[in-house]
């Protein structure tokens, strides 16, 4: 009697297949690395897909300069440990104009530092395929996206005119300047991600685990004051609360949750009884209806 593949085995095989397909058919792929849990899984799968070789592409982090310090430390640690080729890109125009989430709001900050930064980096290196860790269960417009998602020469996504995607036969053909965003985790759910991290013992940023951290309550969110660029408003106090993060982004835009989950098992247990979605902790998705789709059409991941 042959063993039937488990759900995670199937998801893993699908992602590995996608990684190899890109390596076999594109001239200059890159993997976007955002340091979060999905990126951690992506990296783990890339290492598996090409074993015993190293993944035949570099890893790119678009740094907004507002990531948690622990994220940057973790990123550099992983690059050293696994020996991959890490590219870090910062939008220098944004740095020059001192674009930041406090003065310019989440929309402008994300657009300049993340979307424009990403576009600059892709143009600079001339990548024709870019892996991202997006999942279809995250958000409604992501649920609509192909695994191999075509981008025109301006990096735009045309959601009303996507290429058909039949079986596992992927159309990887692009003309010069055009590119494909590739999402190996398309069919994974948040639970699958945590379960896989647990099963494979994948290292993740410590911010996901509960710990006493200095947080400020602002606009209904718990913001970790990661450095003194965050000025306190009148009446605001920094308290040391037992918190953790369900999702990670720029620290001023990412809300912590009160939690005592300090192990992977506890995190999964907490997730199973959660009443809100993970993206609720992201300020950038709430700015306006359809905001994710709009960002994606402009070239955001």
């Amino acid at each position: 009697m042959l063993a039937r593949l488990s759900h995670l085995d199937r998801l893993e095989a699908e992602a590995v297949h996608i990684f190899r397909e890109v390596a076999a058919t594109f001239t200059k792929p890159v993997m976007l690395y955002s340091v979060g849990k999905d990126s951690a899984v992506l990296l783990h799968l890339a290492m598996k897909a090409f074993y015993p070789a190293k993944p035949p592409f570099p890893i790119l982090h678009v740094d907004t300069t507002w990531k948690f310090r622990e994220m940057i430390e973790f990123r550099d640690l992983m690059a050293r440990k696994l020996g991959f080729d890490l590219l870090v890109h910062v939008n220098q125009d944004g740095v020059r104009d001192n674009i930041n989430p406090f003065d310019h709001g989440s929309n402008t900050h994300t657009h300049v530092m993340k979307t424009l930064g990403l576009r600059q980096a892709l143009d600079k290196y001339g990548f024709d395929a870019a892996f991202g860790g997006a999942r279809r269960d995250e958000e409604k417009s992501r649920a609509k996206e192909r695994i191999f998602s075509f981008r025109n020469a301006q990096h735009g996504w045309d959601p009303k005119n996507q290429r058909p995607e039949m079986w596992k036969i992927f159309n990887t053909r692009v003309n010069p300047g055009e590119s494909i965003r590739v999402f190996p985790l398309s069919n994974w759910t948040e639970l699958d991600i945590w379960q896989y991290i647990l099963r494979e013992d994948i290292p993740i940023v410590p911010l996901y685990f509960a710990k006493r951290r200095p947080v400020v309550e602002r606009e209904g969110m718990l913001i970790l004051r990661d450095d003194d660029r965050m000025k306190l408003r009148p009446g605001e106090v920094v308290e040391n609360r037992l918190v953790r993060f369900r999702t990670l982004g720029c620290y001023p835009l990412t809300g912590a949750i009160d939690s005592d989950a300090d192990t992977l098992e506890k995190i999964v247990g907490e997730m199973l009884t959660a009443k809100t979605s993970e993206r609720q902790g992201r300020l950038i998705d709430r700015d306006e209806a359809g905001s994710m789709e709009k960002k994606k059409r402009e070239g955001y991941f």
Binding site: R136, D137, K140, A143, K144, P159, K160, Q162, N187, T189
Partner: peptide, 8 residues
Amino acid sequence: TIDVAYRF
């Protein structure tokens, strides 16, 4: 509905 949505 214009395009396929995948849900889990």
